[in-house]
Amino acid sequence: MRHHLILRVITKLLVGAIMLFAFYVQFHGDFSPGGGFQAGVIMAVAFILYGLVFSLHDVQQVFPPWLVHKLIALGVLLYAGTGVVSMFLGYGFLDYGAFTPDHPAHGQHYGIFAVELGVGITVTAVMVAIYYAFASRPPRLSDEEW
């Protein structure tokens, strides 16, 4: 991929924009289309694009595989943990009214925020991990055969 100058420059410009858009989708999901699932996928696309145009080695220096594997579990833990916290506060599992008992709707905002963040982290990490798993195998076809 040494010679694809245009691709490399455009990718460097785009990756930042894609990540910014992913964060917008993640944290603005309450008010416009979007949420954890979409944001996770878009975030993963940013890393995959970087990995495709540069190399697997480059992207793994930014986002090392051990971190990806930890994040897969962290997202689910964050989601379930939100439910457990609300349970300890004397409410039902995943009943977000627990966080601000005098104004349940605010508690809902915080709860949805935490839960969506958990979903986003897991989806990003799983997608990136799957990409790493596929890309790290030695390919059978050389580039010319395509």
């Binding site: 699932f37 799957i130 798993a133 596929f134 059978r140």
Partner: peptide, 23 residues
């Protein structure tokens, strides 16, 4: 359906991984 799409891609990836092992 929103959740089903994301679960669908995860299971598709699992199927493709199985294909790679079969290969």
């Amino acid at each position: 359906i929103l959740t089903a799409i994301v679960v669908g891609i995860a299971t598709t990836a699992l199927g493709l991984a199985l294909i790679v092992r079969i290969q």
